[in-house]
Design a protein around this nucleic acid. Structure first.
Lengths: 119, 119
DNA sequence: CTGATAGTCAAGTGACTGCTTAAGTGTTGC
DNA sequence: GCAACACTTAAGCAGTCACTTGACTATCAG
């Protein structure tokens, strides 16, 4: 029922940014520190941190600080939640197409209704 | 290849709103007019239109105007694009886990870490 | 034509984003 | 201790977002 999920809001919002998607793609290959993630980017460190905080806030990644180094890693569960929402829509779509097929198979072929004017 | 895709930006951004996800879920079941989509919502008509424009701008839906009624319908292609991005990440994740398993199977059990002394 | 219906355009507003710079805080190496 | 390092906090700023109200344009029904 709750399509209006704040959690989904946050995940999709987090994924709606190329930099953050790059972080996800990078962290999928393995954990990395803040500065490792920042290194290839032409962006200030605070900016990087803010992106990482967005990713952590929605549960896409988690982090742990050891000494002065904070290491981030992926948490694929939330990613699956997002994927499942989309998959569910796609499934409904396919089912609807099937029903339409059935319907057309047992109905005589019919014009979609021409309303009103022949002008 | 291009993770930094503006198109993905727009799709995830579009899905990052519960109202718009509701529209997608509604339109998956079949086409609907602007006012049909607006009817259950406590929101002004212009607000609804703006949401629909976001959905149309990223290709998630298309619309056609007949007489004074504009009818929206889903276009599932872009939805699949978003799903595939996530699926690709999940696949990489699974592959990485497999590699880790293999590695552990042929290595003696060993503490991780202790990297980085050689730079 | 007249009025109701269905949608649209425009402008404004308050909140939120994505970034910046500047000035911290805690760790580690010597 | 002291400096370099890795990160953190705070403030500020331009741009975008999700709405609103009010006025406007087409249809369509009678």
């Amino acid at each position: 029922m709750p399509n209006h999920s704040e959690s989904l809001d946050r995940v999709f919002q987090a994924l709606a940014d190329g930099t953050r998607r790059d972080f996800v793609a990078r962290l999928i290959r393995g954990p990395a520190s803040v500065s490792q993630l920042a290194q290839p980017l032409a962006m200030s460190l605070p900016a990087v941190m803010q992106h990482l905080q967005v990713l952590e806030a929605c549960g896409l990644v988690s982090s742990e600080k050891v000494g002065r180094v904070r290491t981030y890693q992926i948490d694929p569960q939330v990613l699956r939640t997002a994927e499942e929402w989309i998959a569910r829509q796609r499934t409904s779509w396919d089912q609807r197409l099937d029903r339409l097929d059935d319907h057309l198979a047992e109905q005589p072929p019919e014009q979609p209704s021409e309303q009103g004017s022949t002008s």
